[in-house]
Amino acid sequence: MNKPLGISRAIALLGVPLVLLITFTHYPLLQSVVSSFWSKGTKIRPSKFIGLDNYAKLFDDPVLAKVMWNSLIYAAVTIPVTVALSIAMALLVNSKLPGRALMRLSFFLPTMLPMIAVANLWLFVYVPGYGLIAQVMIWLGLPDINFLGSSETALWAMMVVAVWKEAGLFMIFYLAALQSIPQNLKEAAVLEGAGKARVFRDIVWPLLAPTTVFVAINAMLNAFRVIDHVVAMTNGGPNNASALLLFYIYQVAFGFRDFPYGATLTVLLAGILGLFAIVQFKLLDRRTHYQ
């Protein structure tokens, strides 16, 4: 049935994706590595090779320390919350409740919206004085808080938006995984005396593990990749309180026009993401092959 492909045709077929990958992924990354070894050029002083000086700069950059810390908190909080919320929503829409089609739609709706639209929507929710939360707080007699304008709350307000937007997408993955768990496994556990919580803990949760690994890694990548809402809502402020690593790269490279240092930061980010990818594949290999 399958005739072996001629060598020239094989090269042609492999060549197309290879050209695309090299042009848009490998070459730019390589170029970033190269330019991270050079200094910032000006009209008077042209760019020159400075070795690892840009990397040394990473260690005494207070803004970088701040955005790394922000990114870490952002990932550490949004990932578990997103996982928990999306499982809860998947369980809810997988049950036999009336109106679950409407529920599925409304949980999935935030995912379909572009991040910029989501950010605008939440700007209205957060805006002090007449925003949705502000009106409720005033009605309850509580003090009005400028969520996006104060350094204590800006990052947290951003995290709420990210969770709200992403939980719906991961709910779809969990819903598919839930529906692939045979009903009779749960029934066998019930016959042995397991209650609802026990069935979830002993049967459902372990069988969702492959999905959880997948979701956790993707949430992790998104935590480092998506900054649309930062740009639209706070622009990293106040005082870098809500700036994330990628946003800082954008600022350094295109705001301050320091391309070599931006490239250095990019190499750092690529390294972090590459590490996650390795962890993902190791985890997937180890714990997801039951059949």
């Binding site: 496994l185 066998a188 556990a189 372990p206």
Partner: peptide, 28 residues
């Protein structure tokens, strides 16, 4: 107080044979 054998066996795929057999005793 009824035992049951299901059509597709309904064995828990993430548990060993031993854990499968003893699951009910563990729960109880």
């Amino acid at each position: 107080n009824i035992g049951m054998v299901f059509q597709n066996y309904a064995l828990f795929p993430h548990m060993s044979v031993q854990q499968n057999i003893l699951y009910g005793l563990k729960v109880r």
